[in-house]
């Protein structure tokens, strides 16, 4: 039996007295598209930050491909094949779009902390950077400063940087936050395209996006996962409806 891509075992996180994540157990299989939903303040972002290494768990374990990564630093977790995006756009503002994506490629292409190669002369690096720009439809913006992009383009760039390194687990934190309907459709198509055959974990508020994209959904309420199932069953679940979805379910679908 192959190990799950991500496995959470009795995961707990407290800040002072506040218990934000309580006894979370979750298994996300390789190649699965998994969504985490929940009302505001349910601890979605905290859970995300626990998996990606921004926070260390108070108790419990996070396993990637069967390996315990609890307490590891973000860069170490990234090197194990997990890459994430951010809810608040987190790009390199004073660098060009091209350079932003290239930064995402450097480690995976083995450049490490090299200071003896000229970065502009690396043909393969440039080619792959351009390839990703093509995928995220930002080829036209190649030499613009990232900080000067429109918001939706910055979100696309965010995803481009995230997938550049070729990680096989992609975690997206509210990739559609603050976008219009049409922009959302575009970005969902993009996500589907660039995460093909990868494990995807996405936290999202937009119900439409989730039900459409995810194989399975976990519902997080007050730091606990109350249900993990297929979109249809989550939609039908009484407990979920009471705890979270309520009437908004009908509006969303």
């Amino acid at each position: 039996m192959t190990a799950a891509a991500i496995e959470l075992r009795n995961l707990n996180k407290s800040f002072g007295l506040a218990k934000i994540i309580q006894d979370v157990n979750l298994e996300i299989k390789k190649g699965e598209r998994h969504a985490i939903i929940g009302p505001n303040g349910a601890g979605k972002s905290t859970l995300f930050n626990l998996i990606t290494g921004k926070y260390a768990p108070t108790t419990g374990q996070v396993l990637l491909h069967g390996q315990d990564v609890s307490g590891k630093k973000p860069f170490e977790i990234n090197r194990m094949g997990l890459s994430r995006s951010f809810q608040i756009t987190n790009i390199f503002h004073r660098m060009t779009v091209f350079e932003n994506v290239r930064c995402g490629l450097l480690w995976s292409m083995g450049y490490k902390y090299s200071f003896w190669t000229m970065v502009n002369r690396q043909k393969e690096l440039t080619r792959r950077t351009d390839e990703i720009l093509e995928q995220i439809n930002l080829t036209k913006r190649r030499d613009m400063l990232a900080g000067a992009l429109a918001y939706a383009e910055q979100r696309a760039l965010e995803i481009g940087i995230t997938i550049a390194g070729g990680a096989d687990i992609i975690m997206l934190d509210e990739p559609c936050a603050g976008m219009s309907m049409s922009e959302t459709d575009l970005i969902v198509d993009l996500i589907r395209k660039v995460t093909e055959s990868k494990t995807l974990v996405v936290v999202e508020h937009d119900m439409g996006v989730i039900f459409d994209l995810a194989d399975r959904i976990s519902v997080l309420v007050y730091g606990e996962i109350i249900e993990t199932d297929t979109p249809e069953r989550v939609r039908a679940s009484k407990a979920v409806q009471e705890a979270y979805l309520g009437t908004t379910l009908e509006e969303a679908s």
């Binding site: 973000p74 990234n78 004073r94 350079e99 930064c103 450097l106 490490k112 970065v119 390194g165």
Partner: peptide, 20 residues
């Protein structure tokens, strides 16, 4: 060099660089 560019990256956004 890659190092020079990474210095820029960490300057602009150290958290993001860490996740790369």
């Amino acid at each position: 060099t890659p190092m020079g560019r990474l210095a820029n990256a960490v300057r602009d956004n150290e958290e993001r660089a860490e996740f790369l």
